[in-house]
């Protein structure tokens, strides 16, 4: 099977401006060389803590940010090369679901209009035909058709996220990037939305990039995972393999930090000391070395290269 999405060496730097004339005086490397590919019908998860660059990576893939370097190919088409009308057309194939269902829907538009907009914008359908498609999609995500006449604030968080998902799927995209789609929801609602995403993936043949900080959630939905730390992809593996035996010390600590659901097994956890460094002035060498329990002399000096300990697996650490 060929990959639907291929991300190669993706970089996104934000300029640091200072002074009266807003001159560029430096760059924050928010995403620094991220590579992965996702096969059609699969889910790839990007995990990491706040500020690791996972959200920026997702948005850069969709060209909501202009990439600084690297390439993104969707079904073989280089997205970075697209401009203007070509890019706008390509957006039909790639959609995004956002974290906060309270902020991602225009409060002054009725739900029906919100769902219709993608169809109108891309000239797919209008009028009665569009209305039928909206109703069908509402049903697909588990909402009654008459909800279309209401405003977003009349819905609960879970229902709003269903609306946001419906809107993303209106023009039959190939790729959906879901940025923390369940983080803002109550625990008992999260599973409903995850199930919906899984069902829709099967039914519509979607491919997901799932961005999350929650390792419990990621484990339940993804086929492969990329762990990010300070803009770098430190490890990439099949989901099962990663949870069984994380290779990178950061992945190991991250997994270990997740509270266990069995009180009888309060485990001895690896507790990382210190905080995530400021991305504007990352430490030299391996960016993780100041917090790494296994740091060696070499980690302070040189950036670890990407290694492939087994086919398809990637780890960026001097231990391997």
């Amino acid at each position: 099977m060929s990959a639907l999405l291929e991300v190669e060496g993706l970089q996104k730097h934000f300029p640091v401006r200072s002074g009266v004339f807003n001159r560029i005086t430096g760059a924050i490397r928010v995403v620094e060389g991220v590579s992965f590919s996702v096969d059609k019908g699969k889910t790839f998860a990007l995990v990491g803590e706040s500020g690791c660059g996972k959200t920026t990576a997702g948005r850069t893939i969709l060209r909501l940010h202009e990439p600084t370097g690297g390439s993104v190919r969707l079904a073989g088409v280089d997205l970075a090369a697209l401009e203007g009308e070509g890019l706008r057309t390509a957006r039909r194939d790639m959609q995004m679901v956002f974290q906060n269902p309270f902020g991602s829907l225009n409060p002054r538009m009725k739900v029906g209009k919100l769902l219709e907009e993608p169809l109108v914008v891309h000239g797919i359908a209008s009028g009665k035909r569009a209305q039928e498609m909206v109703d069908a999609m509402m049903e697909k995500v588990g909402l009654a058709a008459e909800f279309g006449r209401r405003y977003p604030h009349q819905f609960s968080g879970g229902q709003r996220q269903r609306i946001a998902i419906a809107r993303a799927l209106m023009c039959s995209p190939k790729l959906v990037i879901a940025d923390e789609p369940v983080s803002a929801l109550d625990v008992s609602i999260q599973s409903q939305i995850l199930n919906l995403l899984v069902d829709l993936r099967t039914e519509l043949g979607l491919t997901y990039v799932f961005i999350s900080h929650d390792l419990n959630v990621v484990r339940r939905i993804s086929d492969a995972i990329g762990v990010m730390y300070l803009g770098r992809l430190v490890e990439r593996a099949e989901t099962g393999a990663l949870y069984e035996r994380p290779l990178h010390p950061y992945s190991e600590a991250l997994l270990s930090a997740v509270p266990s659901l069995e009180p009888s097994k309060r485990k001895e956890r690896i507790i990382l000391s210190g905080d995530v460094p400021n991305p504007a002035s990352p430490p030299p060498g391996c960016v993780f070395h100041p917090r790494c329990p296994k740091a060696m002399e070499v980690c302070r000096r040189s950036v670890p290269p990407d290694k492939e300990p087994s086919p398809g697996r990637l780890v960026a650490c001097h231990l391997y």
């Binding site: 609960s156 879970g158 229902q159 109550d186 625990v187 008992s188 609602i189 999260q190 599973s191 409903q192 995850l194 199930n195 899984v198 419990n216 484990r219 339940r220 989901t239 659901l261």
Partner: peptide
């Protein structure tokens, strides 16, 4: 239901357990 809806980690083959309805 609450416990089942967060603890169904590992049994990836089937559907996740979910409490229907809204809070």
């Amino acid at each position: 239901g609450l416990r089942k809806s967060v603890a169904s980690i590992g049994d990836r083959d089937g559907k996740l357990y979910a409490i229907p309805g809204s809070v």
